[in-house]
């Protein structure tokens, strides 16, 4: 076997193994690799007890020196080390990101999301579909509203709780809309069954914006629901609900006086 026909990984690692004496004793003719090894073990029988351990350690070193196949695996390794190292710390993800062991965090993206290190560009021209998908992924990475945080401690649970709070706001808005539709139906029923005077029709016309004002209210509630609940949003929701209830009460009283 020629030296040109070596395994590419061996060529890349540049063979940290100690040089065997067979390199000097190789004859010029065609000698296969297995024949070489057999000859070598026969030639040096004394060192055979020591060589396995040394060769395994050398192989391990070579595996460590080998360039990593993908950056994702290296990221995962660093994540696991971070998990084991600081499993007791009750820190948020933003605080502990500075230490060099853990995932590198970039300040360019919103919220400091984690980005994998750039892989070396392939010289081959990609197909247009893969180029399009990579372009879309790049755009998504640039402007996606979701953050990528280290998964340790209670970070995942906190963000899931945040999501639950948002869904609770969404449910509140949904029930508001249902009540608004019900009130619209109520005013329509009253305008249909009651005496068809013009005033009642006008009040029914008032009832429709009342039902739809709940839409605005629910939309404000929804937009506030994206943020963590604060005093301002709660006060605003309470004031709006009270105002809508007061308007409903006043309209009902006016209707009673009119009839």
């Amino acid at each position: 076997m020629n030296e040109l026909e070596q395994h590419p990984l061996d060529v890349a690692a540049q063979s940290p193994l100690p040089k065997r004496p067979l390199s000097t004793t190789i004859p010029k003719g065609n000698v296969s690799f297995s024949d070489d090894s057999r000859n070598w073990s026969k030639e040096n029988p004394v060192t055979q007890n020591q060589t396995p351990s040394s060769t395994t350690s050398e192989l391990r070193n070579r595996q460590e020196n080998r360039p990593t196949a993908s950056t994702a695996t290296s990221n995962i390794n660093t994540c696991s080390t971070a998990n084991t190292s600081s499993i007791n710390n009750t820190t948020t993800g933003a605080e502990s990101a500075g230490s060099p062991k853990q995932l590198s965090r970039r300040n360019t993206g919103p919220g400091g999301r984690l980005l994998p290190e750039e892989e070396e560009e392939e010289p081959e021209p990609l197909r247009w579909t893969s180029r399009l998908s990579s372009f879309i992924r790049e755009i998504y990475d640039q402007c996606s509203p979701s953050l990528t945080l280290e998964n340790k401690g209670s970070i995942a649970r906190d963000h899931l709780a945040n999501e639950r709070t948002y869904l609770a706001w969404l449910r509140t808005s949904l029930s508001m809309i249902t009540v608004g539709v019900a009130i619209t139906q109520l005013f329509r029923l009253q305008s249909e069954s009651g005496t068809p005077t013009k005033k009642l029709i006008k009040i029914a016309e008032l009832g429709r914006p009342l039902g739809t004002s709940r839409y605005f209210h629910s939309q404000t509630v929804l937009s506030y629901g994206q943020f963590p609940a604060s005093r301002g949003s709660v006060i605003l929701a309470t004031v709006t609900v009270l105002a809508v209830l007061l308007a409903c009460f006043i309209i009902v009283i006016l209707q009673g006086r009119a009839s």
Binding site: S144, T148, L149, H159, N162, E163
Partner: peptide, 20 residues
């Protein structure tokens, strides 16, 4: 738990869009 946690901002945006 080794993979990083991705928060649900994208899905909240989707829900907001659909509900709006």
């Amino acid at each position: 738990q080794r993979a990083p946690f991705v928060t649900s901002g994208f899905w909240v945006m989707m829900t907001t869009l659909v509900s709006t």
